[in-house]
Design a protein around this nucleic acid. Structure first.
Lengths: 201, 201
DNA sequence: GCACATACTGAAACCTGTTCTAGATTACGC
DNA sequence: GCGTAATCTAGAACAGGTTTCAGTATGTGC
């Protein structure tokens, strides 16, 4: 019965926790500068003052590293949202607001976003657990937006299906935007379109 | 005013066309066996009896190669669909049928599917043009399903938005299935869910 | 059929993700 | 504090995508 806070990690000593933070910070920094390909494992190791082998002990691959970074960022976003939740009238509107607000944040750091999203989409089975964590976090953000002020109650199967579809759309259209294959307006439209699946209340 | 058939390629001599086919065939073969990571450029070159440099002249990267393969497969699927189009009553049903039929085909070659989809999702700006052709092909398949027997007329902006969302969902949920993060039933549900965005007629 | 430009070949070289190894260093139970 | 196990470090080595190059083959205009 060992339940860890925040994404089930084994307990770490302080120095280890510090190393982990340094690694994530370095990754964020490099990613923000030049995106996915600028995150080079040797550079991350050097910048975070950790040996390459140690980096790999903490994060078993570049994709793991970037997905963990994504979780980290998502977590910050989630806190912000809890502090100042969207105030719109209906569930649908609140979800749209939430996603557009997230999108606005991502527009500020397009390279970072690109690095994290590419990794998330490229992740294979071996990263399953970590991707699931990100996915759960996203789900609960949307669920909270749907619930509004009420404490979120157990989601129905139907709700979960809709949320999955929203998440899929959210990720893919973000990627399309990052790749220059979709405009900001198009991302907004896609979000609004998919959110029509949420029943008006 | 030079318009080429099938995805705008410069004209090739017969031997060049043959080489191109050999490369695509080899890629399909290797991908079908072991997925994305089994498609190794040196092996593709060897199997298609072409020098590595030549392979790169035809397809400037592994991702280009796999996206081209995707286009190729999609094209075959499209032909099949034209020969035996879905016969269901409403537009929505026909789209669901189309996608589920495609899904069934992909279940037969999961590794091949994985290789192509991973590449498609991982593609960056430099592959923009090729990804667009795949995207256009997908769009027209769905559009034809919507139109049914009628010749498809000019799609509205609204229709295009819905189709984009459907495509996004389609790709992401396929990936989730390939990664073992979603069941076949879930993919089916997601498709049915997103297709509710198509108005009943 | 010749001359030239373009394309193809084989092989080496390069880059970056990943793995491995031998030797410090650190954490921890006693 | 001491001994042991786990962790960390520096650096070499390996793997597969990509680039490069010298030489050969092919296609094209004349």
């Amino acid at each position: 019965m060992t339940t860890y806070t925040k994404a089930d990690r084994a307990p770490l000593t302080e120095r280890q926790e510090a190393r982990r933070r340094r690694i994530l910070r370095a990754t964020t920094q490099l990613a923000a500068r030049g995106g996915y390909e600028s995150v080079q494992m040797r550079e991350v190791a050097e910048l975070s003052e950790v040996a390459l082998g140690t980096l790999y002990r903490y994060f078993p691959s570049k994709v793991h590293l970037l997905v963990a970074t994504m979780y980290d960022q998502l977590d910050q976003l989630h806190s912000q949202l809890r502090r100042r939740p969207p105030k719109s009238a209906g569930a649908r509107e609140r979800v749209v607001d939430t996603l557009l607000r997230a999108f606005k944040g991502m527009q500020r750091e397009p390279h970072l976003t690109e690095a994290m999203m590419r990794a998330l989409q490229f992740a294979d089975r071996s990263v399953g657990a970590e991707v699931d964590t990100v996915s759960r976090e996203t789900t609960s953000m949307i669920l909270e937006a749907i619930s509004g002020d009420e404490p979120p109650n157990e989601p129905t199967t139907e709700e979960l299906a809709v949320i999955r579809v929203i998440t899929h759309t959210w990720h893919s259209s973000l990627i399309a935007w990052l790749n220059g294959r979709a405009s900001i307006a198009q991302v907004r439209t896609d979000i609004e379109t998919v959110c029509r699946l949420i029943p008006e209340d």
